[in-house]
Design a protein around this nucleic acid. Structure first.
Lengths: 219, 219
DNA sequence: ATATCATTCAACATAATGCTTGAATGATAT
DNA sequence: ATATCATTCAAGCATTATGTTGAATGATAT
């Protein structure tokens, strides 16, 4: 080891950043943040081959962003710590603030509807306590089953119009999905607002909610 | 462009992470955070060739982490926004918490001395108001000249023992340098503590101090 | 206009990544 | 022990990143 301590430290920091520098690994992190899973489950969810997912997961593990443990035959990957989530979110914030391309894509998701500021998690918790809000969890059913916000209804985007017609026109709806990288909630809010409903997006998704120690319901 | 909006967003987030994934670019960011500079100055400071520095800087610019403006013949690079600093720091925090190698290097820097928790910037500001603290800025003189904390003395590590012998044994010393990636302050604190002084490190460096709107003195 | 200076571009060699395929490992069940 | 299952390893190929060199650009000064 002839390199200076400074260079050695920078190499380590760069290693963490590099782990976050492939879309496939960001997808894996997003999934692991929903709930710990084995390699096969993560490969299914992300559309990667099993060998490829395994290699990416090892890159994430070397960077300390995830940890793994064996459970019987399966190796279960879990988020390293809360700071991993914070890092993912900050990556999104910086990209949103500075990259025109991101802004363009996000505006495209809104499909002509205005996109109001997201609702804070504190606000949502207060509304839940009052019982004065309808919550839509727009993630796939299996992720909903592994944990969701109390009182949330699980509903897929294509079925949104079926449910929506049963709502009172003025009802306030708050939608959420996986977290910083998930676009379902954006799309759901746009669809509902285009139908005249008062829909807003929750800031962050289930992982951020859980991370703050708030109540999570498992099916 | 046939890729989904989700994939397009992940590509953008990955672009930001990728920009942070090379030690050379982390060095450049650290320097730019001290003070905006031109390409040649940054190349000198980091030991990169000019052409190479220019290319890395363009990578950082594409990721929105820095911005550039022309001033006469020179192109001056500046930190994109405060979140760039936050992202750099979070990268360090995640690496420190999860990578054994980082812990080992940092312990090595302490050279046998215990390394107390860093002093918060709020605490230092209070001490300055009281006038009850000695502050050492252990960065190179040119960076000190471009801005430093009020009352700080600029002192290079090799000269530390000369100054230190003039201090009262119980005096409290707070050292700082460039910021999250800088190791000079660690080394200065270790050297002073090994001589029996009550030295501690400031949390963060000059960029974080300035970013919070605190007073900065220019030579 | 010409010369000068700082920066960027283009082309190249070298090295590292990403993904695929098929074999090897490690734990469990028969 | 043998078979099975989930995961990891190893090899190979295409792609992309890094750093060097020398030429091209863009703004300024004479």
């Amino acid at each position: 080891m002839s390199i200076s301590p400074k260079a050695a430290l920078l190499d380590e920091y760069a290693l963490v950043a590099r782990a976050l520098s492939a879309p496939a690994r960001l997808m894996l992190l997003e999934q692991i943040a929903q709930a710990p899973r084995g390699v096969e489950g993560l490969a299914d969810k992300t559309g990667l081959s099993i060998a490829n997912a395994s290699q990416h997961l090892q890159t994430l593990r070397r960077a300390g962003l995830v940890t793994s443990r064996r459970e019987g035959k399966a190796v279960i990957y879990t988020l390293g710590d809360a700071k991993s989530l914070a890092l993912m979110d900050l990556l999104r914030v910086v990209a949103e603030r500075n990259l025109a391309q991101v802004d363009k894509i996000l505006r495209g998701l809104s499909d002509g509807a205005d996109a109001p500021e997201p609702v804070s998690r504190d606000d949502l918790a207060a509304r839940i306590a009052e019982g004065s809000v309808t919550i839509f969890d727009v993630r796939p059913a299996d992720e909903f089953a592994l944990g969701h916000i109390p009182g949330a209804q699980n509903i897929a985007l294509p079925e949104l119009h079926l449910i929506a017609s049963n709502l009172q026109p003025g009802a306030e709806i708050i939608a959420y999905c996986r977290g910083p990288y998930c676009i379902y909630a954006h799309q759901a809010v746009a669809a509902l607002r285009n139908k005249g409903f008062n829909a807003r997006r929750l800031d962050g998704g289930l992982p951020e909610w859980r991370e703050e120690g708030r109540q999570v319901v498992t099916a």
